[in-house]
Every structure is written in structure tokens, then in C-alpha cells.
Amino acid sequence: MSNEGYEPGKVKVKNNAYKFEGAFHHIERNQPILNEKGDLVGVTNPRNMTYVHTYGGEAVFFENLSKGKIIASRCDNKDCTAFGSIFMPFRIHCPDCLSRNTHVDITDIAKTTSRVHTFMITERTGAFNTLPKPIKFVNVEFEGVVTILMGPMLFGRPEIGMKVVPIFRTKDPTYTILDLGWVPKGTKESDLPEFYTFDA
């Protein structure tokens, strides 16, 4: 991704506070908007700014994707109605008892039991999309997990019931959900998109 004409802002943490360095916004001249007769109807308001986002207790999930691992979470509170439930999407706290969930590595479960519950293919995307078009989503069921994860299918054509396996952006990771993708079981390593591998 390019950042034409300016250095992207970077953030460090010092004494448990964010330290901002570089440009987090840049200023562009506004423009008038005229109707067909040449009358003023409004103006443009250019704005380009970068936000910071805190992962908190979810950081462990996003950090491990680039290491080829899927970390889920489980309620281990024996008194909870959801005792033993494994959550993926990762939940920091159990939605029922609100106790802190235990981290569970479900990489092997994902490699061996993942099936497409449903899927979607579209040419349409919103601004800031970075996935190749057409974009394809799969919603993946795992054995022993109570929820169904949505992610991008990065090779092949999805079908309901299809067995799929995870792939990881182990090279040049984004540290976002885009570091996790899905391909049909049996896909060759050579067919994976740039930066993605089956294992770390």
C-alpha cells in the first residue's frame, strides 16, 4: 500500500501511553460544488486521518495468526451455563458469566474439521477494500466450537459443506483478521496467494 507524499504515522507505547510520531492527517484544499446553472450548492470537506485501535485482550488472537495459529477462548467456570463452550470469534470474557475465558489453540481442530456453513461471492466492495475481486467469504463450522467464523476464501470456489483449511499471512502480516484465510482441503501450497502459507 502506498502513502503518496507523506510518511505514515507510527505509534509506540511508553509508560502505558501511546506516543504518536509522524503524520496522522494531511490537509487538502476544499472545493466548491455548483449546480448546472453555476449556483453554489455546497463545498467538499477533504479529510484524511489515521486512527489508533487498541486490541486489549484480543491481541493474542491477532498476534498468533502470523505465527500460523488460531487461538480461541473457552469458558471454564463450572457454575456457568456456557461451561466448556469454545468461542471463535475469540471472546475475552464469557458472554454468560463474564468470567475471563481461557485461551485454547484450535489450529489442529481448524485444520481437520472445518466445513463451509455458508458463503458469498461478490464483485462489489466498499472503499478501503484490500481483498482481490470477486471477494469470497466463507462461514466456517468447527467441531466442538459453538459459533461459526466468517473469513475470506482466498483460492477456489466455495460450496456449502465443503471441507476447508486455514491459511495464514505469515509473511508481511497485517495483524488483522485478513491474516487468516481459507482454501479448499487439498489445495497445493503453490496455489496460495502471495504472503500466505499453511504453517508458520
Binding site: F119, M120, G126, N139, G151, T176
Partner: peptide
């Protein structure tokens, strides 16, 4: 981050 397209998040249900 998945496409920045809400229709897509709904479309999996439609499918």
C-alpha cells in the same frame, strides 16, 4: 476489513 461491504455480511445468510 472483509471487503468493507455490508451486503456481503448479509448475503451469507441469504445464501
Amino acid at each position: 476489513p472483509l471487503g468493507h461491504i455490508y451486503t456481503g455480511y448479509y448475503a451469507v445468510m441469504a445464501q
